[in-house]
């Protein structure tokens, strides 16, 4: 080994340290928060397909989705025809459903927040909880390094003692290079895996790199799944809070 190569190596190492330090300085909390806001931006509009497969049936729903910050979102079913117009509004901690067949809006009672949303493997609580993830959990890096040839962080999220959350623990893997999440695993209070959220189809939509596809698999029923795919996604659209009103929830398009 020559002196020159040694110097180069040292320099490289120093350079690497210098370059990586800003990212190192990022707390786990900031990274998670950033990942959490990925698909939303300040406001967004998207076109999604949700394919649900269960032991007993499978179905596919096309939906349009709007969001404003973390507090508001509105989802409206476009097909199949039988369910066209069915809509869900999230405003703060409340979830409302609109049922076109009976032309009524119904607030989802607290007891059903853990119930399935639109028959999928997402819960009503999933629509609400994201706004609180950074407030309700403590974060730590449980792994940092290479997994299957990709540099990643793995985070462990433990609920704060007083936090009103349903999970006992959450684990999340994020790619270092582009801050893209690869999977999130949800555990119950006994430490058993309940479900896994897997991300894929990373592409640029609305000017941002996002995972266009999300797959939920419940741990107790490995043959069941829900796949959510974004076909269109625009950020920073012009909507305000009045858009996320019960009146607009009822409005047929």
């Amino acid at each position: 080994m020559t002196v020159r190569t040694l110097v180069t190596q040292l320099l490289n190492t120093a350079l690497l340290l210098l370059l990586s330090s800003p990212i190192q300085a990022q707390t786990a909390r900031e990274i998670i928060d950033r990942v959490d806001r990925l698909l939303r931006g300040e406001s967004s509009r998207g076109q999604i397909t949700m394919e649900i497969t269960t032991e007993h049936w499978s179905r596919s729903l096309d939906m349009e989705i709007w969001s404003l910050g973390v507090e508001h979102s509105l989802v409206r079913v476009q097909s199949p025809a039988r369910e066209e117009g069915t809509a869900t509004l999230k405003a703060g901690q409340e979830v409302w459903n609109y049922l076109p067949r009976v032309d009524r809006t119904i607030k989802v009672p607290p007891s059903l927040m853990m119930g399935s949303w639109m028959g999928s493997h997402f819960t009503n609580d999933d629509l609400v909880k994201e706004s609180r993830i950074v407030d309700d959990y403590d974060f730590e890096i449980s792994f940092e390094g290479e997994r299957e040839g990709v540099e990643v962080w793995e985070f462990q999220l433990t609920p704060r003692p007083e936090a009103p959350v349903v999970w006992g623990r959450i684990e999340e893997q994020v790619r270092k290079a582009d801050l893209m999440p690869t999977w999130i695993r949800y555990y119950d209070e006994d430490g058993d895996l309940v479900r896994t959220l897997t991300f894929s189809g990373y592409k640029t939509m609305g000017g941002r790199l996002v995972p266009a596809s999300m797959l939920v698999t419940p741990a107790d029923k490995p043959e069941e799944q829900t796949v959510l795919t974004y076909h269109e996604l625009d950020f920073d659209i012009s909507v305000d809070e009045s858009f996320f009103s019960l009146r607009n929830l009822r409005a047929r398009r």
């Binding site: 269960t54 049936w57 499978s58 369910e83 459903n97 049922l99 067949r101 009976v102 028959g119």
Partner: peptide, 8 residues
């Protein structure tokens, strides 16, 4: 039973 939300 078909996965949709029955309502009436």
């Amino acid at each position: 039973s078909d996965g949709s939300m029955g309502n009436d």
